[in-house]
């Protein structure tokens, strides 16, 4: 399973990077969204997909075979952060569009006459 997952993760990253390198602002944002999905799955796979029980100690009885809780905790924070970052990007994108009238990254260069 891990090998299949690894390939899927690679695919997600590939698509994400390809989108992020495009000209359109909205594609870049979608790319970052995909990137965070890829990262979450990567973390999960790194910890191992084995484990037959969710990492919850029910009534103080510890089962030996839990899924690894640490990557899960890391991913949980990452999910919420990536939501905040994505929404920040979205607002940045449409404010830039409103102010500058384009979402084409080729035109949104800042350095040409910058002193």
């Amino acid at each position: 399973m891990e090998i299949v997952m690894s390939v899927a993760i690679g695919l997600l990253f590939m698509a994400a990077v390809y989108l992020m390198l495009s000209k359109s602002l909205i594609r870049i944002i979608i790319g970052t969204g995909l990137l965070s999905h890829g990262a979450h799955l990567l973390l999960l796979t790194m910890g191992g997909l084995g484990g037959t029980a969710p990492p919850v100690v029910a009534d103080g009885v510890t089962v030996s075979d839990y899924a690894d809780p640490l990557p899960q905790a890391l991913i949980l924070t990452a999910i919420v952060i990536s939501f905040a970052v994505t929404s920040f990007f979205l607002v940045l994108a449409y404010r830039a569009y409103q102010e500058l009238g384009t979402d084409n990254m080729e035109l949104l260069r800042g350095t040409e006459d910058y002193e």
Binding site: P55, Q72, L76
Partner: peptide, 9 residues
């Protein structure tokens, strides 16, 4: 993959 918290979130 037995991550109920993650799934919910």
């Amino acid at each position: 993959f037995r991550a109920p918290d993650l799934a919910l979130t």
